[in-house]
Design a protein around this nucleic acid. Structure first.
Length: 117
DNA sequence: TTGCTGACCGACG
DNA sequence: CCGTCGGCCAGCA
C-alpha cells in the first residue's frame, strides 16, 4: 500500500477511535481513561468531542461503550435517541440502571492497563 | 483572525 | 456535602 505506513493515529480523533475500537464486547471505558492512555489526561473533553465527530464521520466506533468516570451515560443525547446507548449496552449484556452502568467497576476496561505495550 | 463552546476530570473552599 | 473554577484541544461563526 502505497508506501509509508501512515499510522492511523495522525489525528487526536483517530487515536481515540482506535482505543475505543479496542474495547472488548461487553466492556466499557471512560473518557478520562482514554485521554490518560493517549497521554492527554487533561483533554478528556476532547475525547467526548471526538465521539461527537465519530457519528458524523464514517467510523464504526462503539461510542456507547464510552461513559464518564461515574459510569453515567452522559453522551446518550448525542446518539439521536436517549435510549439507543442504553439499549446497545444492554444488548451486550451490560445492565443499566438509572442511566448508570451497573457493576461499572467490574466492566470497566482500562486501555492503559490492557494495552500496555 | 479571534473567541466560544463542548459527551470531562480533578482540585479547592 | 455542595458549588465553582481551571485546563486541555479542536471545530465553527
Amino acid at each position: 500500500m502505497s508506501g509509508q505506513g501512515k499510522p492511523a493515529s495522525n489525528s487526536f480523533f483517530d487515536n481515540v477511535y482506535a482505543v475505543v475500537c479496542m474495547v472488548p464486547y461487553g466492556r466499557v471505558t471512560s473518557y478520562g481513561a482514554i485521554a490518560a492512555y493517549l497521554g492527554t489526561r487533561g483533554s478528556a473533553r476532547m475525547v467526548g468531542w471526538a465521539m461527537n465527530a465519530s457519528h458524523t464521520q464514517v467510523t464504526g466506533v462503539p461510542a456507547h461503550r464510552v461513559v464518564n468516570r461515574n459510569g453515567l451515560l452522559t453522551g446518550r443525547h448525542h446518539f439521536g435517541s436517549l435510549k439507543i446507548m442504553q439499549q446497545l449496552l444492554e444488548s451486550e449484556g451490560i445492565e443499566i440502571l438509572n442511566d448508570q452502568v451497573v457493576r461499572f467497576g467490574e466492566l470497566f476496561w482500562d486501555p492503559a492497563k490492557e494495552i500496555k505495550h
